[in-house]
Amino acid sequence: MKKGFPALSAFCRVCLCTALTGLIAGCTLTKHIALDSLSDSLAGADKRGRAAKIKRAENSLMPVLTGEEDAVLMGDFFPTVLKLYEIIAAQNPRHQGLSVMTGSLYVMYANVFVQAPAERLDASQYDLQAEEQKRAKLHYLRGASYALRALELRYPGLSAALDEGNLEDTLQFVERFKKSDVPAAYWAGAGRLGAFSADPLDMERLKTLPCTAALLERAAELDPDYNEGAIWDILTAFYALAPAEFGGNIERAEFTNAESFRASKGKSPSPYITYATSFCVPNQDAEGFKENLKKALAFDIESDPANRLALVIAQKKAAWLLAHGDDFFIEWE
Rank of each mutant, 00 (worst) to 15 (best):
N166I: 07
I88Q: 11
P282S: 03
Q284S: 08
S60W: 08
P224Q: 06
I87D: 14
D181K: 00
S260V: 11
G103H: 05
I87S: 14
G157W: 07
L141D: 07
G4Y: 10
H139D: 11
A240N: 04
D285I: 06
S9R: 12
K55H: 07
A147W: 04
A296F: 09
G288F: 03
K134A: 10
Y106W: 12
L8E: 10
S39D: 06
A240Q: 06
E152A: 02
I313N: 13
A240R: 01
W332F: 08
I250G: 00
I330N: 13
A136L: 09
S37F: 13
F238S: 08
R308Q: 15
D225Y: 09
Y126P: 00
R262A: 14
G157C: 05
E228L: 15
H32Q: 12
M101K: 13
E119S: 12
A253H: 15
A219W: 03
A116E: 15
A57T: 12
A230N: 09
V81T: 07
G248R: 11
A185I: 01
P282L: 09
K179V: 14
D122A: 11
K55N: 10
T170Q: 14
R252I: 02
Y186P: 00
E131P: 00
P156N: 03
V174M: 07
G229E: 00
D199K: 03
H139L: 11
A71C: 02
E245W: 03
A319Q: 14
W320T: 07
R135N: 13
L209N: 03
M62N: 02
I273F: 02
S39N: 06
S260C: 15
A90V: 04
L206E: 11
F173D: 01
L171G: 00
P305E: 06
M1V: 10
N292M: 12
A136N: 08
G4C: 07
L162T: 07
Q172K: 15
A147E: 03
C12A: 15
P305D: 07
M101I: 01
F261D: 12
I301N: 04
Q125P: 00
F299Q: 09
L151I: 04
A220V: 00
K3E: 13
E259Y: 09
E254M: 04
E259L: 14
A220I: 04
L153Q: 10
A310R: 12
K3Y: 11
E228A: 14
A242M: 15
A220N: 12
K295A: 13
A51C: 02
T236I: 04
Q115M: 15
V81I: 15
I250T: 13
D223L: 01
S37M: 10
T102M: 03
D122S: 09
A190H: 03
A161R: 02
P269S: 13
K265H: 13
R252T: 05
K265I: 05
H324K: 13
M203D: 12
R48W: 08
A263W: 09
L235Q: 06
L193Y: 05
H95M: 04
C12G: 07
F113H: 14
V81P: 06
